[in-house]
Design a protein around this nucleic acid. Structure first.
Lengths: 82, 82
DNA sequence: GCCCATTTGTACGTATGTATG
DNA sequence: GCATACATACGTACAAATGGG
């Protein structure tokens, strides 16, 4: 799974998988450090040119992996330490 | 159209027709009473082992029959009185 | 305490691409 | 070729929680 930082809408990998990989890489690199809030669905959707539902799916993957934790009405926070 | 409560992926009837029949029976029997919200597409898909699109097709049939009514963004409700 | 914007979660409707028989 | 079925993706809509003013 290449992580170019750009979404390839034509490629073989689903967009939500690509987006999860990008965010996972940003967490792994420390660009999104422990405790930091991720951009909202709205912002992610705008930044990557995808829909909010797709961002939702990508974040669901990271949540399952234990990399982030969501706080209803507040945001999504990085739980993974570098 | 037999209504066993189970989907037969091998049988002659399309899955979406079978699913519509099952839900129609549940409405007719009062198991899904007037005003009750049906499970979401996601839940129906999980319960019956089919895709969301197939659930969509099944519900479209019931909608056309006037058995249920959709409230966009909220759910599908039984309109048929027993 | 109340309004209001933001954010999350969930659900619906639709469209498209792919695979299968 | 066509109908069926699934997965993906987008857009829209509503409810609930949070936090600031």
């Amino acid at each position: 799974m290449p992580v170019s930082g750009e979404i390839d809408h034509e490629g073989p990998d689903p967009v939500y998988v690509q987006l999860a990989a990008i965010l996972r890489a940003r967490i792994g690199s420390g660009e999104l450090p422990h405790g930091r809030a991720l951009p909202s669905r709205e912002r992610l959707a705008a930044e990557f040119g995808v829909s909010r539902g797709t961002c939702e799916k990508a974040l669901a993957i990271l949540r399952e992996e234990g990399l982030v934790k969501t706080s209803f009405g507040r945001g999504v926070y990085v739980t993974k330490r570098p």
